[in-house]
């Protein structure tokens, strides 16, 4: 029962761990960026699902519905998504320059190049 009642958190944790695993385990810088994205998405889902109130509707003021879901997390996540996209864009831009400077985007090779 408790598992089902908080299944959204389980989804978040599983997604987060997948993202985290990709960041740590993958040598390809591009895939690391993908990992970061999955990681961040899990957090977005956490926020959004948090705002849901059982039986609540969209927060539009009318006379029939008195129970609303909280709109604030959704708004916050809009900002967070923008931040996430900027991070991705910057990461990709750096990867392009790494590729043109080193000729590779493999983490192990790059680590050797750094010395």
């Amino acid at each position: 029962m408790s598992f089902l009642s908080s299944f959204n958190y389980w989804a978040v944790i599983i997604l987060m761990m997948i993202g985290f695993y990709i960041i740590i385990a993958n040598n390809n810088l591009l895939k690391k960026i993908i990992g970061i994205n999955i990681f961040q998405t899990s957090i977005f889902i956490m926020f959004i699902s948090m705002g849901k109130v059982v039986d609540g509707t969209a927060p539009i003021l009318n006379e029939i519905n008195t129970l609303y879901s909280s709109p604030l997390p959704h708004v916050l996540i809009l900002t967070a998504i923008v931040v996430g996209i900027s991070t991705t864009a910057l990461g990709l831009a750096i990867i392009i320059r790494i590729h043109s400077a080193f000729g590779t985007i493999d983490d192990d090779v790059l680590k050797k190049e750094m010395e």
């Binding site: 990681f39 957090i43 997390p73 750096i94």
Partner: peptide, 23 residues
């Protein structure tokens, strides 16, 4: 470039943790 990328990965994870905490 590589240092910046490394910092980006670490930094984003850190910031995301802070976001979770705020949530």
């Amino acid at each position: 470039l590589y240092s910046a990328f490394k910092y980006l990965i670490f930094g984003t994870i850190g910031a995301s943790f802070i976001l979770i905490s705020v949530g």
